[in-house]
Design a protein around this nucleic acid. Structure first.
Length: 435
RNA sequence: GCGCCCAUCGUCUAUCGGACAGGACACAAGGUUUUCAUCCUUGGAAGCGGGGUUCGAUUCCCCGUGGGCGCGCCA
């Protein structure tokens, strides 16, 4: 039978990075095996499972290109089937009713574990076993008539003809129960594979405290879907050689479950960022422009960016952008009111002799044609005439016209800023910062 | 506490018992005739400890230690 796997998120309004990684591994496995990747929305918690929360899941999947093959199954539509199954198990003697007391909620239906030692072969972790004494019976239908996770999950997997269940390591212990349920229900037991957890620097499950923990946050922080996808793939898996940056197609062709590790893996934002920078550097310019446009449009100065200038700035900055949020630093290209970095000013402008040179440069720039080439020539000339080392005037000019000591090539930057702007800023710097 | 699992540079990882344990991120130094970034060169950096098995162990086995996960009328 051909492979059928599923991603079964419970819509809570956010999609955790660990969950989406499970989705990615399932997707990769399905595509590699030419099988089906299905989606099941476990929306039985009516409080949290709002249409918006469901949409968040769909958006995250869509963003990452996690295409699914059949209409999603909404678990909430299966309530009757779940109840029926609980009754069936009860009649067949696989379950019993009991009031577990305590809070006195009434009778619930409890599944009887087989009472035998169990073993299953995990596709990732190998043979796993557990003795009968360590497995207790489990509630499958609450006293209020609603099914528990275990019942619903197993039943829906049967309904969907799932052949392989690839999920987080935190489900390993549930597997024995689920297998027993499959068997009691007379269904074929699927293959299981448990993915290592993603942990933080403290070795704890990766959470909000550790920076971005949800798919939406990575997106907002300027990460590319392709980079995040690629990076997540490397957490707990490798192709077996030194390849790291891989396209989806390559990933699909290389991905196998037997190469997945079983120990937890620590998230490394720096490495993700590095990968992201490579992806950004390679993307087509017009796509980059579009991305940056949307980043900048959220800023108060963002809509002041003219089409052409914005394009040129993107061209200049693409290779040095690590994330899309880099555009937030481009303000000085688009507004007249710029911020000055105090340290940079002190180091480059507030020094003996700089004033005369900037005055001279300003004079010549006033009559230049403002190509990068002639700007360079002018600055070179001023340096030379004053016995200054080649390039030594670059930083003072940069700080004077951009307010910061870092940026793209200074001649290109000056050219893009335009004559009027540059003369004005030079004048201001000479007045206010030079001695 | 009980059960299950895991264990290679700081981090992610490679290694089908056999060469100097390789790569990437990060870090450090230098270079790419302007900063930042890119790129290049170089460097430091690992088999948790103890027993076995073997001619030979990072690799196989056992014990210890460390870490993760689980032990709900949550999912």
């Amino acid at each position: 039978m051909s492979v059928r796997v599923r991603f079964a998120p419970s819509p809570t309004g956010q999609v955790h990075i660990g969950n989406i990684r499970a989705a990615i591994f399932n997707w990769l496995f399905a595509r590699h095996e030419c099988g089906k990747f299905l989606l099941r929305i476990e929306d039985t918690d009516r409080e949290r499972s709002t249409p918006e929360a469901v949409q968040t899941v769909l958006d995250a999947m869509n963003w990452l290109g996690l295409t699914y093959d059949e209409a999603p199954l909404y678990q909430s539509t299966r309530l009757d089937a779940h109840r029926e199954a609980a009754e069936t198990l009860l009649k067949a003697g696989h379950a019993y009713k009991e009031d577990k007391g305590g809070t006195g909620k009434g009778e619930c239906i409890i599944f009887k574990m087989p009472g035998k030692d169990m073993m299953f072969k995990d596709v990732i972790k190998g043979e796993l076993r557990k003795s009968a004494k360590d497995m207790s019976d489990l509630v499958i239908l609450r006293s209020d008539g609603t099914p528990t996770f275990h019942l619903a999950n197993v039943l829906d997997d049967i309904q969907m003809n799932i052949t392989h269940i690839i999920r987080g390591d935190d489900h390993v212990e549930n597997t024995y129960r689920h297998i027993a349920l499959f068997q009691a229900l007379g269904a074929t037991v699927p293959a299981y594979g448990h993915l290592p957890m993603i942990i933080n620097q403290q070795g704890k499950p990766y959470s909000k405290r550790d920076g971005a923990a949800f798919v939406g946050e990575f997106r907002e922080k300027g990460f590319m879907a392709e980079a995040l996808f690629n990076y997540l793939t490397l957490l707990g898996w490798s192709p077996g050689d030194d390849r790291e940056k891989m396209s989806k197609d390559v990933l699909v062709s290389l991905f196998t479950l037997d190469r997945v590790k079983s120990g937890p893996a620590q998230m490394d934002i720096k490495k993700l960022t590095h990968l992201n920078a490579m992806y950004i550097a390679e993307m087509p310019l017009d796509q980059f422009i579009q991305k940056e446009r949307s980043v900048v449009s959220r800023l108060e100065w963002g809509n002041a960016c003219g089409e052409n200038l914005f394009k040129e700035v993107c061209k200049l900055m693409q290779s040095r952008a690590h994330t899309f949020t880099a555009a937030e630093e481009w303000k000085y290209f688009f507004v007249s009111d710029i911020a000055y970095d105090e340290k940079a000013v002190k180091k480059n402008l507030n020094k003996e002799g700089v004033k005369q040179l900037l005055i001279k440069a300003k004079e010549r720039l006033a009559t230049a044609d403002f190509s990068a080439k002639s700007i360079e020539d002018i600055i070179r000339g001023v340096e030379k005439e004053n016995g200054m080392g080649e390039g030594k005037l670059n930083q003072p000019v940069r700080v004077a016209v951009t307010g910061t000591s870092i940026g793209a090539g200074i001649y290109e930057t000056v050219a893009l800023l335009g004559q009027q702007c540059v003369l004005k800023r030079l004048g201001y710097a000479i007045e206010h910062f030079c001695i």
